[in-house]
């Protein structure tokens, strides 16, 4: 499987019902996106760090993701503060920095990191197929859930087919160069993967028809809320209420 996740651990976060984790992550993310005071953002960051630590994931494991996000924000910092013509400009000699734009960049940076940490600790701890089932049990549009399930299941197989073709061309002495032969070979590989995937889709559909599939999925998985979930739900509702209260009133 080419997807990595942190679902196979034991922690307080892992023991929560997957539906609770998904819904709370969504609500937290929405609330965080509306926060603008730095005090509120700092407490939200603290909260996401606490959840992250409770989920028993280490920073080293997610450093790549955090780095990618923060490099993305670096471009914000390199462009936005210099493009404003607001009143609160600060002249630093070689450039004029717009204070309001700079602060907005900081807010976006903190929000982005909070949401990423929340997603890692709350969503990445649900294995991806349970995730799909949890979504369907909270009445998420079933077509999207099925699309996701099949993508997960067959992306890996398509990946294996790609590796197979790659091995086949390498075994016959193919070395990529900057020439027509290389382009033609790569185009052929891509086309062959797509055709194979289409063929497979047809066979999968036929196999499902043979087992009397009529467009409806029935799940055997049962989700149940436990005491810990109720505790978590009340605590997180309280937190979100406090955030929103502090922000708007």
């Amino acid at each position: 499987m080419i997807f990595s996740d942190f679902s196979d651990r034991n922690s307080m976060v892992h023991s929560l019902d997957p539906r609770t984790r998904i819904v709370s992550c969504f609500i937290f993310a929405c609330a965080v996106s509306q926060l603008s005071s730095f005090a509120a953002l700092a407490s939200a960051l603290l909260l996401s760090l606490v959840l992250f630590i409770f989920s028993k994931i280490t920073f080293r494991e997610v450093s790549g993701r955090l780095l990618a996000l923060n490099i993305f924000f670096l471009f914000f910092f390199l462009s936005l503060p210099f493009s404003g013509q607001g009143k609160d400009s600060v002249d630093i000699g070689w450039a004029i920095i717009d204070k309001e734009y700079f602060l907005n960049c900081c807010r976006a940076l903190i929000r982005g990191n909070i949401i990423l940490l929340l997603c890692i600790s709350l969503i990445n701890t649900v294995d991806i197929l349970t995730f799909a089932q949890a979504l369907s049990s909270i009445r998420f549009p079933s077509k999207l859930v099925h699309l996701m399930m099949f993508t997960i299941r067959y992306l890996d197989i398509v990946h294996c087919e790609y590796l197979q073709i790659k091995r086949a061309v390498i075994a016959r002495g193919f070395v990529p160069h900057m020439d027509m032969h290389t382009y033609r070979t790569i185009a052929g590989m891509a086309a062959s993967i797509m055709i194979k995937a289409l063929d497979r889709a047809e066979r999968v559909n036929a196999a499902m028809k043979c087992r009397c599939f009529d467009g409806k999925f029935y799940s055997v998985k049962k989700f149940a809320l436990r005491r810990g979930d109720l505790f978590y739900i009340s605590l997180s509702s309280l937190t979100v209420t406090i955030f929103i209260w502090g922000e708007f009133f």
Binding site: M149, F150, R153, R203, C210
Partner: peptide, 11 residues
């Protein structure tokens, strides 16, 4: 089916 991968798709 000939290829079990075509048939098994659940988790």
């Amino acid at each position: 089916f000939q290829n079990p991968d075509d048939q098994l798709f659940c988790a």
